[in-house]
Design a protein around this nucleic acid. Structure first.
Length: 280
DNA sequence: AAACAGTACAACCGCATCTTT
DNA sequence: TAAAGATGCGGTTGTACTGTT
């Protein structure tokens, strides 16, 4: 049953790679290509586990890697993508050719975080620090809601499939506080798509309706490239299953793989046990 | 010059998901 | 279908390097 263990952990080397090890691994991969990492150390004559070899190759030895500091443009991309994707470094790295998730993660933690803080932006939420501080000081509202649940993890009431969708969580958290969040039946959620808003990258706050919930006025929605989702400037779409979900300008929230970057606003006329999200 | 603090980044660890048997 | 290993990902750590006192 199952597979054989990837490697015998006894006697394996750890720590920094030597030039000789690098050469052996490089030679092996360039000759044989990337195959089963379990077999690589043995075949390449290395006393490392396959996992370590994979990491060394993907993060350091790959010939297509760019070395050196991220350019301003790359840095801006990382910030934009992080605002949309959160700490999903591999997803972010996939938008930056020649950069690895590890490299971007390190750069974020050592450079960008500080830079954003200096600029008065909270690196976690991408909101101005003053707002974040105010929200932290603000006592939790004790709103009377029909269905409540005490939760510890945002995933319990996050309105996206993705637990890393921090923006979404924050939007709700700000309104109700961490401990008192109304339960919304996922089946009742819909995204209302406004054609005009789909035509360019979003300018959510400036074009929001007057009904916009006050908590969301401060909420910083990131720029978003609809072309990534196969939607062109005329609100046409062409791939990625978007066809299936864009019908009559209404899409089911649960049909979308990643909508953390969408402009989602709670309308004021939230029904008792459900809510509608407007796309502005 | 030595000691210490701060910074940068490679590498490891643990977990979740995928794949194979 | 279940079990177990492989793989990938994100968080964290260890350590070399650099700057400051």
């Amino acid at each position: 049953m199952g597979r054989q263990p990837c490697c015998d952990k006894v006697g394996l080397k750890k720590g920094p790679w030597s030039a000789d090890e690098d050469r052996k691994l490089m030679n092996f991969i360039l000759t044989h290509g990337q195959c089963c990492w379990r077999a690589v150390p043995k075949l390449a004559g290395l006393l490392r586990c396959g996992k370590s070899c994979r990491l060394r190759w993907t993060n350091y030895l790959r010939p297509d890697l760019k070395r050196g500091l991220l350019s301003d443009h790359e840095e801006k991309m990382v910030i934009d993508l992080h605002s949309q994707l959160g700490n999903r470094w591999s997803k972010i790295a996939s938008h930056l050719p020649g950069r690895t998730d590890n490299e971007i993660k390190n750069h974020w933690n050592t450079h960008i975080k500080k830079k954003l803080r200096k600029m008065g932006i909270d690196p976690l939420t991408h909101k101005p620090l003053s707002i974040v501080e105010q929200e932290e000081d603000k006592p939790l509202k004790k709103l009377q809601k029909p269905m409540k649940q005490t939760v510890e993890e945002p995933t319990n009431y996050c309105l996206t499939k993705d637990s890393n969708s921090k923006n979404m969580f924050m939007a709700m958290n700000l309104e109700y506080g961490v401990e008192e969040v109304p339960m919304i039946d996922p089946e009742c959620l819909e995204l209302i798509c406004n054609n005009s808003s789909m035509s360019t990258t979003s300018t959510s706050t400036s074009s929001s309706s007057s009904n916009e919930s006050s908590i969301l006025k401060d909420f910083q929605f990131p720029d978003f490239d609809w072309s990534d989702y196969g939607i062109d400037n005329n609100n046409h779409h062409n791939n990625n299953g978007v066809d299936n979900i864009m019908e009559n300008n209404v899409m089911s929230l649960w049909d979308v793989d990643d909508f953390s970057s969408w402009d989602l606003l709670l309308t004021d006329d939230i029904p008792q046990s459900s809510s509608t999200f407007g796309l502005f």
